[in-house]
Simulated scan of single mutants.
Amino acid sequence: MLTRHGLNSKSDAVSVVMACYSMERLQGIVAAVDSIAAQTLQPAEIIVAVDHNRALANTLRREMPGICVISYEDGPRGASGARNAGVAVVSTPYTAFIDDDEIADSYWLSELIHPFADDRVVGTGGRYRAVWRSPKPSWFPEEFGWVVGESFQGMPIETSRVRNVWSGNMAVRTAAFRAVGGFRVGFGKSGERSQPEDTDLCIRMAELGDDFHWVYVPASVIDHDIPFERSTFQFFLARCYSEGKGKIELRNDRNGSEELDDEREYVRGVLTSGLRRYVFGDSVSLSKAATVVAGIVSAGMGALSAIVCKRGQFVGSR
């Protein structure tokens, strides 16, 4: 049942999985679940996968008796393992993912699963709309929205085929997700580590068949909470560094496979255009221009650190 705007309809085709881990986010977890329950297209089931926190799991079972709450404790900490544990109990052909710091628009789910009418679509992803707790910094360039989990300048404005989407606003064919083993546990975002587990998953799932691909659906919208600590320049630089490092680690793990064309085009196209706009165009801002340069340099340093580390491992193994 792939109804685009079926008002208050119930779907037996899709379940929603949300990973969470902290009691401090209890209010956000409940709000996220409420937004899923208010969808114009109701999912068959909402599954909350709690990452190594029995107290939180017990609290959620009391607070939300109609929701399936599971405890993930069998593997290493991280959203990847928790999401996989959630999908393990899914019985529907499609699974959607949302995070515990997000609120879904009422048409989020119906828009997100609509492209699956095409059998070649193995997964979809939607648009992130940032909700800043503090004022958005004047120096923050729109081209770097991904730093805080916001759709950024340069992304498609229409439903489009893409290489990858982000795991907090994603839907997959459940069987295809399971066929590749789900998210790669031990590779992802945990503590200071920030590796692109969603990009890794998207590439592996697309490789399952000829012309299998992902679709970005900008009409499928979630509001993403941006806390104060993500509005600092220090966080910006650290996140750019981690992204550069993580993408090279992804390439290394795939035995040197050339999967970073999107990143090169992003730098050559999106960031170059942004610099022109901030220096010579109709949105002149020297602070944003300087931030773009700083972001490029920081990501480059992260990439270089991963390259040096890989070469060191190679030399050490000889």
Score class of each variant (00 low, 15 high):
residue 1 M to G: 12
residue 3 T to E: 14
residue 6 G to P: 08
residue 6 G to M: 09
residue 12 D to M: 09
residue 15 S to I: 00
residue 17 V to R: 04
residue 19 A to F: 04
residue 21 Y to K: 10
residue 21 Y to D: 12
residue 22 S to W: 05
residue 23 M to C: 11
residue 25 R to W: 06
residue 26 L to T: 07
residue 28 G to R: 00
residue 31 A to S: 12
residue 32 A to P: 07
residue 36 I to C: 09
residue 41 L to H: 04
residue 43 P to M: 06
residue 45 E to Q: 13
residue 49 A to I: 00
residue 51 D to I: 02
residue 52 H to L: 00
residue 56 L to Y: 01
residue 57 A to W: 04
residue 58 N to P: 06
residue 58 N to M: 14
residue 59 T to Q: 11
residue 59 T to E: 15
residue 62 R to A: 15
residue 66 G to F: 07
residue 69 V to C: 01
residue 69 V to L: 02
residue 73 E to R: 14
residue 74 D to W: 07
residue 74 D to R: 13
residue 78 G to A: 02
residue 81 G to S: 09
residue 81 G to W: 03
residue 81 G to D: 06
residue 86 G to F: 05
residue 88 A to G: 08
residue 89 V to S: 11
residue 89 V to N: 00
residue 90 V to I: 04
residue 93 P to D: 02
residue 94 Y to W: 10
residue 96 A to N: 03
residue 99 D to R: 01
residue 100 D to Q: 01
residue 102 E to G: 04
residue 103 I to L: 11
residue 103 I to S: 03
residue 105 D to S: 11
residue 106 S to M: 15
residue 108 W to A: 03
residue 111 E to N: 10
residue 112 L to Q: 04
residue 113 I to W: 00
residue 114 H to G: 08
residue 116 F to L: 05
residue 116 F to C: 01
residue 117 A to P: 10
residue 118 D to L: 08
residue 119 D to C: 10
residue 120 R to G: 15
residue 121 V to I: 06
residue 123 G to Y: 01
residue 124 T to F: 03
residue 129 R to D: 14
residue 134 S to Y: 09
residue 140 F to G: 05
residue 140 F to A: 09
residue 141 P to E: 03
residue 145 G to S: 05
residue 146 W to G: 05
residue 147 V to L: 08
residue 152 F to H: 10
residue 158 E to H: 13
residue 161 R to K: 15
residue 161 R to F: 10
residue 163 R to L: 15
residue 166 W to S: 13
residue 169 N to L: 04
residue 169 N to E: 03
residue 169 N to F: 08
residue 170 M to D: 01
residue 171 A to K: 08
residue 171 A to D: 02
residue 171 A to E: 03
residue 174 T to P: 05
residue 175 A to R: 09
residue 179 A to L: 07
residue 179 A to H: 07
residue 181 G to S: 06
residue 182 G to T: 00
residue 184 R to H: 08
residue 186 G to I: 01
residue 194 S to T: 13
residue 197 E to M: 12
residue 201 L to W: 04
residue 204 R to A: 10
residue 204 R to N: 09
residue 204 R to S: 08
residue 208 L to P: 01
residue 208 L to F: 06
residue 209 G to A: 15
residue 209 G to W: 07
residue 214 W to F: 14
residue 214 W to E: 06
residue 219 A to W: 07
residue 222 I to M: 02
residue 223 D to W: 06
residue 223 D to I: 01
residue 227 P to G: 07
residue 229 E to L: 12
residue 234 Q to F: 11
residue 240 C to D: 03
residue 241 Y to C: 00
residue 242 S to L: 11
residue 248 I to F: 12
residue 252 N to F: 05
residue 254 R to M: 11
residue 255 N to L: 12
residue 256 G to L: 06
residue 256 G to E: 05
residue 257 S to D: 13
residue 259 E to G: 07
residue 259 E to V: 14
residue 261 D to E: 15
residue 262 D to K: 08
residue 267 V to K: 04
residue 268 R to C: 10
residue 269 G to E: 10
residue 273 S to V: 12
residue 274 G to K: 02
residue 275 L to W: 04
residue 278 Y to S: 06
residue 279 V to I: 15
residue 280 F to D: 13
residue 282 D to S: 09
residue 282 D to P: 00
residue 284 V to F: 06
residue 284 V to W: 00
residue 284 V to G: 08
residue 285 S to D: 06
residue 289 A to S: 00
residue 295 G to Y: 02
residue 296 I to H: 03
residue 297 V to N: 11
residue 302 G to R: 11
residue 305 S to N: 04
residue 305 S to F: 04
residue 307 I to N: 06
residue 312 G to A: 06
residue 316 G to I: 08
residue 317 S to H: 09
residue 318 R to W: 13
